[in-house]
Design a protein around this nucleic acid. Structure first.
Lengths: 164, 164
DNA sequence: CGGAATCCGTTCGGATACTG
DNA sequence: CAGTATCCGAACGGATTCCG
């Protein structure tokens, strides 16, 4: 179970997964969005064992997603800007789960605009002019980092991208 | 390493993670978006071992994210609508990686509108009226499935949500 | 070519106890 | 309260082999 050495993939998705690709990290981050700050709060909320939590928090701090401070006389973990920037991912995943793996008891969580309390829109992909795009209307184009990567050029994905 | 029994969490995010929360699933789905269809294509592209790939494909088919067909004389795996709906998540994660874990060689992948070739907008969260919302401008509100869950009401997140 | 089966090392994750 | 240290089982993941 190689510790997610996805680095060689030269893929931003794989890079992201190396930070939040395990079972617990995203749930910890979710709780951080909900205002949890302290070790035992995470521990109680998630039921995660202490050693694993310790490792995850350390990893997330190293990755710059969480920030450890000692302001209130005890350690606190807060989301950095880098961590806050994960919110679209979390919300997109929550909405997908709401839609495709619903609870029989109805909606679990609704995200609302803090200002007026209205529900937000489903997260989606938009063109430069603001049009909402369907999955098939989007194409991936390799950038400089991939064009100069011979390994990528020979890969099936590489070929496929050039045809697309 | 309990097989991701996050079901008891009563959380759409955890539900989603139970489907795509492991190391490989999202990369397989990424390749499916890139047009890969066949067992050995995934195998060659990802360097994943055959048994693990077999398990993952089976799981994704069961989850309704991929569909197995035998149209071309050989098995093929294609994204279902449920799978296609994961695209905002993939793109959001790719963009986050691009921004916060960049390659020294420049951009790896750019997503463009197939129609005019223009780059898409960064995935984000929007209010009902279309305004782009910052992380702090969004609030979560528990729905019926959570309000009727006593375990949730007593949890730190539950308390926190009521205050928010 | 698409898997299923087997074997094995590693790493994860849970529980518990201990320290400051 | 916030970890660290240790033990242990289980599940994962890799490599290889075998079969339709």
């Amino acid at each position: 179970m190689k510790l997610t050495s996805f680095d060689h993939f030269n893929c931003s998705l794989a890079q992201t997964l190396s930070v939040i690709g395990d079972h617990w990290s995203l749930l910890i981050i979710r709780d951080a969005f909900f205002g949890l700050r302290r070790f035992d709060q995470f521990h109680d909320s998630l039921g995660i064992s202490r050693n694993v939590l310790s490792m995850r928090l350390k990893k997330l701090v190293q990755a710059g997603v969480l920030e450890k401070s000692d302001g209130a006389g005890h350690p606190e973990y807060r989301l950095t800007d880098k961590g806050l920037a994960l919110q679209p991912i979390l919300i997109a995943m929550t909405q997908w789960g709401d839609t495709y793996l619903p609870s029989p008891d109805g909606k679990r969580l609704t995200f609302v605009d803090r200002r007026d309390g209205k529900a937000i829109r489903p997260v989606g992909v938009h063109a430069a002019d603001g049009r909402r795009l369907k999955p098939r209307e989007i194409k991936a184009r390799p950038g400089p980092a991939l064009q100069n990567d011979p390994q990528f050029a020979d890969s099936p994905t590489g070929r496929n991208l050039r045809e697309a």
